[in-house]
Amino acid sequence: MSIMVGILFAIGTYLILSKTLLRIILGTSIIGHGVNLLILTMGGLKKGVPPILGLNEQYFTDPLPQALILTAIVINFATTALFLVLSYRAYSVVGSDDIEQLRGFDDE
């Protein structure tokens, strides 16, 4: 699992460092998945039944990492969507998705 997290982070970092906006967005979402996987791994992987009162089992899984991941996924979904809209707007205003073109103020 942790190796997988490392791979996802590496891919994400590579994509973020590239020049195209779309690749950068893909990179952030891949890193987001890496982070979710990391939370799952760090929460400890163990066998057990769902933590619901009334089940007479000895081992329960820890629900917290899953709750965290669910929240993180929702937030990640929202920010990625927003980022997509934003870069689409930037693309239509600037006319390019190359971030080298995205610099340049009037006064520099």
Binding site: I31, A90, V93, I99
Partner: peptide, 17 residues
């Protein structure tokens, strides 16, 4: 604004991760 906001969003997404 669009140019700056892209940088801003990217920085903050990474720091959130």
């Amino acid at each position: 604004q669009l140019i700056e906001s892209i940088k801003y969003v990217l920085i903050n997404m990474i720091s959130s991760f």
